[in-house]
Nucleic acid binder design. Structure first.
Length: 552
RNA sequence: UGGGGGAUCGUCUAACGGUAGGACCGCGGACUCUGACUCCGCUAGUCUAGGUUCGAAUCCUAGUCCCCCAGCCA
C-alpha cells in the first residue's frame, strides 16, 4: 500500500486550507478576490490582502478577481477606483479580464431581495434608525422585534418596489432580513439589507434610490463570480453565519466559503482609512501619496520597490492571532532589495567646505567610480574632483572622541574613489563655528590606495564644489512618535512634528539625470528616490544602518 | 452578565503526539575604498495550574489575559 505523500508543511493555515481543498477534490483550482471599497487609497494593510489573494491564485493555478465593493455611493469616487487599479498593478499583480463591481450585480441582488420577501425572510421596517438601534438590544440582552416585522408579503413587496422607485426619502424605510432578534450574534438580529439613498453612484449614476449593504452584497457577489475561497480579515468572523444564511436562502450558482485571517499592523504606523483620510484632509501630510503615508502611493513615491513590499508581507506571515509587526522588519526588506538593485552615487547632505591646498587652482579631473559593488554589470562612471570640495559636516570633529576615525586636525582619511587627504586646519567664523577645512592631498594615492601600503580608517563621501548640483532633499522620519499611535486616543496627538526635514544638498553631477521614480543610494547615507516635483528633488526612502551613530 | 476569535524568543512566524526552528531587532567578532553589504557566533520563547501519554506547544479539564461585534459603513 502506497501512502500518499505527506504534504510539505506550508507555513500558514491559508495555504494549507487551499492545498487540502485541492487534494480532496473539493475544488479544481482556487478562485479568490480582492474586494476593496473605492473610498480611499490602498495602503500596506491592503497589500497583505492583495498578496494573499493574488498569491494563492498564482501559486495554485487559479485566478483572482479585482472586485470593487461599491455599495455605498456616498463615500465612493472614481478617483479611488482608478488609483486602486494603479496600485494593484504597481504591486505586481494582474486580474486579467476579471474586473468586477458589486454594482454590476445590483439588479440580481434586487431580484434576490424580492425572493427573500416572497419567502417571508425579509420585511420592510418603517422604524427610524434610532428606533432600530434602540430595539436591537445590547451585547447581553436580546433585541425587541420591530412592530413592522409581521407585515404581509404583499405589503412588503409593494413597499420595496416603491422604495426602488424613489417614492420615499432617505432614512424612512429599510429592508431587513427576518432572522432572530434574540441571537447572541448581533449580526443576526434582523440585519438591514437595503437602505434608501438618493445619491449619485460613480458607476450606476442616478439609476438607483436604494442600495444593498455589505452583508447583502458580498457573499452573493462571491457566489456569482464562483469564488471558491473568500478570504477576509478577522472582524468579519461574526458575519460568516449571515454570509452563509444568504447562501442558504438564495438561488446562488455557487457556494463560496469565507475564511478569516488577522490584518496587518505595524509599529509607528496607522492603517485606518478613517485616520489616513483625516491626515490628508487636515493637511498633516501633503497628500495621499506623501512619502510618510503608509499608502502604496506614498511608498511608491518614497522609492520603496514593490518587490520589497511583497517580501515584507511574506516575511510578516499569515495567522489568526492579532499582531504588530516591527517597522524595522519593513526597513530591512527595503534595504535588502535596494542594496542589490540601487546604483551608488556621492551626495553631501550637510556640506562643509574643504580646500585642498596643494591641489592646483583651476584644475580638475575625473575619477572612476563603481556604480554598484553588488552588481558588476552596473558598470562605472566618472566623478569630477577639484581643489574645492564638500564633505559631510558629521565627518569632521575638531576634538574627536576615541572611536571617531573620520576627519579631524592632523588625521588622514580617504575620499572615496579619489585620494587620501589630511586635515591641516579648521577655519572658524566669528562665532567659533567651523566653516572650512584646509587640507592637503597625497597625489600618489589617486584611486584610493597608497603605494606605500599605509592604511586609513575612514573612507568618506564628497562632491566637487565646482561641479556639484544643488538639490532639495526631503528627509522623512516616522510620522508618529510612539510605536502604538492612537493607543491613548487620538493619533493626531502622537504625530511627530519632525517627520519631514527639508535640506539643500550638494550632489555629484550625474544625479541631475536621475529618472523620476528611480531609487539610488547616496553612499554612506541611505537610499533616495527622485521625486516628480519640478527641480531636482529627492525623497529619502530609508537610511543605511549606521553602527557608529548607534554607538553614540 | 451575551456571541465569536486568539495566546510560541523583545517582535513576526514555523513545528499538525516524537530534537521548539527561521526571520527581524539586539549584542559580539571577521572582512571592508560605504562604520554599509557579506560572513561567523551569541542572547532569548511554548499564558497559568492540573490531567492523559513512554513522550504534550500540540490532546483533556479549569483558569487568566487580549482582540472583535450593539452603522441605514465596509
Amino acid at each position: 500500500m502506497s501512502e500518499p505523500a505527506v504534504p510539505a508543511p506550508t507555513g500558514n493555515f491559508l495555504w494549507t486550507l487551499i492545498q487540502d481543498d485541492l487534494a480532496s477534490g473539493k475544488h479544481k483550482s482556487p478562485v479568490t478576490r480582492f474586494p476593496p471599497e473605492p473610498n480611499g487609497y490602498l495602503h500596506i494593510g491592503h497589500a497583505k490582502a492583495i498578496c494573499i489573494n493574488f498569491g494563492i491564485a498564482e501559486e495554485f493555478g487559479g485566478r483572482c478577481h479585482l472586485r470593487f465593493d461599491d455599495t455605498n455611493p456616498v463615500k465612493e469616487e472614481q478617483e479611488f477606483i482608478d488609483s486602486i487599479q494603479n496600485d494593484v498593478r504597481w504591486l505586481g499583480f494582474d486580474w486579467g479580464q476579471h474586473l468586477y463591481y458589486a454594482s454590476d450585480y445590483f439588479e440580481t441582488l434586487y431580484t434576490w431581495a424580492e425572493h427573500l420577501i416572497k419567502n417571508g425572510h425579509a420585511y420592510i421596517d418603517d422604524q427610524t434608525a434610532e428606533q432600530i438601534s434602540a430595539n436591537r438590544g445590547t451585547l447581553t440582552s436580546p433585541g425587541t422585534p420591530s412592530p413592522f416585522r409581521e407585515r404581509s408579503v404583499e405589503e412588503n413587496l409593494d413597499l420595496f418596489r416603491r422604495m426602488r422607485a424613489g417614492e420615499f426619502p432617505n432614512g424612512t424605510r429599510v429592508l431587513r432580513a427576518k432572522i432572530d432578534m434574540a441571537s447572541g450574534n448581533i449580526n443576526l438580529r434582523d440585519p438591514v439589507l437595503y437602505r434608501i439613498l438618493h445619491a449619485h453612484h460613480p458607476r450606476t449614476g442616478d439609476k438607483w434610490f436604494i442600495y444593498p449593504n455589505y452583508d447583502f452584497a458580498h457573499g452573493q457577489s462571491d457566489a456569482l463570480e464562483h469564488v471558491t475561497h473568500s478570504l477576509c480579515s478577522l472582524e468579519f468572523e461574526d458575519h460568516k453565519p449571515l454570509y452563509n444564511w444568504f447562501l442558504d436562502k438564495l438561488p446562488v450558482p455557487a457556494r463560496p466559503e469565507q475564511t478569516e485571517f488577522a490584518r496587518l499592523n505595524i509599529t509607528y504606523t496607522i492603517l485606518s482609512k478613517r485616520h489616513l483620510t483625516q491626515f490628508v484632509r487636515d493637511k498633516h501630510v501633503r497628500g495621499w501619496d506623501d512619502p510618510r503615508m503608509p499608502t502604496l502611493a506614498g511608498l511608491r513615491r518614497r522609492g520603496v520597490p514593490p518587490a520589497a513590499v511583497r517580501d515584507f508581507i511574506k516575511r510578516a506571515g499569515i495567522a489568526r492571532a492579532n499582531s504588530v509587526v516591527d517597522i524595522a522588519m519593513f526597513d530591512a526588506c527595503v534595504r535588502e532589495y535596494l542594496n542589490k538593485a540601487a546604483s551608488r552615487y556621492l551626495g553631501v547632505l550637510r556640506p562643509l567646505k574643504v580646500v585642498i591646498e596643494n591641489y592646483p587652482e583651476g584644475q580638475s579631473e575625473e575619477l572612476e567610480a563603481v556604480n554598484n559593488p553588488e552588481d558588476p554589470s552596473a558598470g562605472s562612471r566618472k566623478v569630477p574632483f577639484g581643489r574645492e570640495l564638500y564633505i559631510e559636516q558629521d565627518d569632521f570633529m575638531e576634538n574627536p572622541p576615541k572611536k571617531f576615525f573620520r576627519l579631524s586636525p592632523g588625521m588622514e582619511v580617504r575620499l572615496r574613489y579619489a585620494y587620501f587627504i589630511t586635515c591641516r586646519e579648521a577655519v572658524k567664523d566669528a562665532a567659533g563655528n567651523v566653516i572650512e577645512l584646509r587640507c592637503t592631498y597625497d597625489p600618489a594615492t589617486k584611486g584610493g590606495n597608497a603605494p606605500d601600503g599605509r592604511k586609513v580608517k575612514a573612507t568618506m563621501h564628497w562632491v566637487s564644489a565646482a561641479h556639484a548640483v544643488k538639490a532639495e532633499v526631503r528627509l522623512y522620519n516616522p510620522l508618529f512618535m510612539r510605536p502604538d499611535p492612537g493607543a491613548d486616543g487620538d493619533p493626531v496627538k502622537d504625530l511627530n512634528p519632525n517627520s519631514l526635514e527639508i535640506i539643500e544638498a550638494r550632489l555629484e553631477p550625474a544625479l541631475a539625470n536621475a529618472k523620476v521614480g528611480e531609487t539610488v543610494q547616496f553612499e554612506r547615507l541611505g537610499y533616495f528616490c527622485r521625486d516628480a516635483d519640478t527641480g531636482l528633488v529627492f525623497n529619502r526612502t530609508v537610511g543605511l544602518k549606521d553602527a557608529y551613530a548607534k554607538a553614540q
